[in-house]
Structure formats: C-alpha cells, structure tokens
C-alpha cells in the first residue's frame, strides 16, 4: 500500500547548516505519529518543506505516491494537508469565528462553513470566544483557535507543531483527547515535548536529531532507547522561546 505521505532523502540546507539531512519518512492513512527531538533538530524545517514554505535542497515528497515536491503552499494545502505552525499563525485582525469560517469556506457554502467553524470552536471549548478579535487573545487561547482553524476543514493529514506550548494542563489534556478523536478519520503528525502527553496518545514515534531520523519505533521502545535518552530525554527539554509573529 502506498503511504499517505512519504519523503525520500529530504534535505534542507541553509548555507552551511543542514537543518534536515536526508530524511526518509512515511506516514500512512489514519496514522498517528509523534515527532520528538531537541530544539534545533529540524522538525519545524521538515514541516516547512512538507507544506511548501521551503523548497527542499534535495529529495522528494510524495503524496499518495504522487510527487508534490516544489508545489506552492496553497496547492499543497488543497491536497488535504493542514498545519498548525509552531509560532501561531492567525488572522489577528479577524474574530475567531471569521478566521475559522474562512478555513472551511473553500469547501462549503457560507452557512455550512459557519456552522462547522462554530462546531470546531465549541469542540475546543472556546465557543464563547467566537466573537473575540484573535489578536487580543492569550497565547493558550490563540493555540486553540489555530487548532480549530486547522482541524475544522478536516484535512487528511494534520500536522501539529508543538500544539500545547503555552497551554494549561487542562487545555493540554483536552488537546490530547482532540488529537485522538481527529485521528479516527485523519492522519496526524504531532511534535511534542511533554512526555506525559506523548505517553497519553501512545503512538509511533520518530526521533529527530541534528536533522536526521535517529530512531523510529513504537512509543514503549523509543522511550526505553538509551540513545534517545542521551540526546533528548536525559536532559529536561529546554523551554520554548515563543517569538511573537
């Protein structure tokens, strides 16, 4: 069976820095995959390549077997790939409901889009914020609005780059539940630092280190792997610096 998404030798260089180094990774339909690794391992850059924000230096990206390397971001999004970026990327000047409606509107009429957008906001427990200007929300709430924006149009592959950064414990648990729920019909790749969160969603794990795939296995094996402890788990993950967009 062809994978939903596969990369072959994907490489992204910035001058002398090799941010993503010859990564071959495959995700199948409805799979849930965790991506972990220390800061600077190349996870976000890998995602930028997948979503067309960067044109990879070398390698190929295949979507259901079709080569999509070099397509523009909007064309890749139209295939059914949605991403929540590490630094929230939102329509600050719009209200939450306006932004999420826009996310769904490409596929549905105005009324239906609004209904689906509202449902997504409510599912994330922020229905009450639907009329609020996104730019005025707290960081955790912005994360939730962006999650709603990404999941509302129901893409086949949902990429989540550190979705729970800045969230309360309660919001984090809610997000884990949402991810499992979304995973019933959609493939999900999620980057997380929170071990509890990773154990909770118990999926296959790929460990990135210095732009390469270090280990790829089921959660139990990866979390017990001494190499993973060496590069990542041994040290507490450095806190993420959130750069305002």
């Amino acid at each position: 069976m062809t994978a939903l998404l596969a990369t072959e030798g994907l490489t992204m260089r910035f001058g002398g820095v090799v941010a993503v180094d010859n990564v071959s990774l495959a995700v199948s339909e409805r799979e849930l995959r965790c991506l972990i690794g220390p800061n600077g391992a190349g996870k976000s850059t890998f995602f930028r390549c997948l979503t067309g924000q960067y044109r990879p230096t070398a390698g190929r990206i295949l979507w259901r077997g079709r080569d999509i390397t070099g397509l523009e971001p909007h064309a890749i999004a139209r295939l059914g790939i949605g991403i929540k970026t590490q630094v929230p990327s939102l329509f600050d000047g719009l209200t939450a409901i306006e932004g999420v409606t826009l996310a769904v509107r490409r596929k549905h009429g105005e009324r239906e889009a609004r209904r689906r957008a509202m449902a997504a906001l409510e599912r994330l427990g922020i229905g009450a914020l639907s009329g609020a200007l996104v730019g005025l929300l707290a960081h955790g709430q912005r994360q939730l609005v962006e999650l709603a924006t990404v999941v509302a149009p129901e893409p086949d592959l949902i990429i989540l780059d550190e979705p729970t950064a800045g969230m309360s414990a309660e919001e984090t648990a809610g997000t884990a539940a949402l991810i499992r729920e979304m995973n019933r019909d959609h493939a999900v790749i999620v980057v997380e630092h929170d071990m509890q969160f990773i154990r909770a969603i118990a999926s296959g794990i790929t460990v990135f280190h210095q732009g390469r795939v270090l280990v790829e296995d089921c959660a139990a094996k990866v979390l017990a792997d001494p190499r993973v402890h060496d590069v990542y788990l041994g040290r507490p993950p450095t806190p993420q610096v959130v750069v305002p967009a």
Binding site: T51, Q53, E72, P73, H74, A77, R78, G82, I83, T85, S89, L90, F91, D92, G93, L94, G99, L102, A103, R106, T149, P153, A245
Partner: peptide
Amino acid sequence: TAIRENELRAALLGYNV
C-alpha cells in the same frame, strides 16, 4: 482581507495569495 492579515496562514488554508 485575510491575506492582508496573514499571507502565510491564508496560503496554508489553500488560498492562492
């Protein structure tokens, strides 16, 4: 208007900026 607010987000939602 959304593109004015955030080009990247609009593109990532599938809109041709």
